[in-house]
Amino acid sequence: MRIYSDPHTDETVVALRGEIDYGCEETLKTSLTGALSCSDRGITIDLSKVSFWACSSVKVLLAVRELALQQGKTVSLLATSPIAHRVLELTDTLQLFTTSTGAVSRLPHPSV
């Protein structure tokens, strides 16, 4: 997991990679809520390098989204891997996290 501020947009970006499964749930929630707390406007999540996305992780995204709404902030997606995109589609939650353009791109992850 990598958390950084995008100098072009001043957004707080949380870039996830690898397998995000049930065992990661608490760490994921802690990291996302921490990033949200440090952000003025909300967070953008990059899922482009996620190779496995468990349905339990969707529950975490929904909880973080609800917290953001309570604080007047946003949670959006920068990009999704095919697997993360499919899980979000199947759970009918993808539209809750799209960017303001209404589309979630599958762009390459920024180099570390």
Rank of each mutant, 00 (worst) to 15 (best):
L78D: 11
D92H: 10
T30L: 10
V87R: 02
A63M: 10
A15G: 14
T44P: 00
D10A: 15
C38V: 12
L61V: 02
K59N: 10
V14W: 12
S81Q: 05
Q71T: 04
S31F: 00
R65A: 05
G34L: 01
S48A: 07
S56G: 09
C55M: 13
D46Y: 07
D10K: 15
T33S: 01
F52C: 01
V87P: 07
E11R: 09
P7F: 09
S5W: 11
K49L: 13
G18I: 13
A63H: 08
K73G: 02
T44H: 08
W53N: 05
D92V: 10
L69F: 06
V75H: 03
A63G: 05
L78T: 10
A79C: 11
V87N: 06
R86C: 07
C24Y: 10
A54M: 11
T33A: 01
T30S: 09
L62R: 10
S57Q: 08
S76F: 13
L36H: 02
E19I: 00
L28G: 08
S57D: 09
K73S: 03
I20G: 00
S39G: 00
A79F: 00
G18W: 15
H85L: 10
T9R: 07
I43K: 02
T30M: 02
L16H: 10
S76A: 14
Q70A: 07
G72S: 02
Q71R: 14
L47S: 06
C24L: 01
R17A: 05
L96N: 12
A84H: 08
S56Q: 07
A54I: 05
A84N: 05
T9E: 03
E66S: 13
L90I: 09
L61K: 06
A68N: 04
S37I: 02
C38T: 14
E26T: 05
E19H: 03
C38A: 15
Q95Y: 13
A63R: 00
V58M: 02
D46S: 01
D92F: 09
L36R: 01
G34Q: 06
V64P: 00
L32E: 06
T74S: 14
G42M: 10
T80G: 13
F97Y: 08
R17N: 11
H8K: 15
R41P: 12
L88G: 09
C55N: 15
L77S: 08
V13G: 06
S76V: 11
S31P: 11
T27A: 01
E19Y: 03
I43Q: 05
S48W: 04
D6A: 07
L77M: 06
L67F: 02
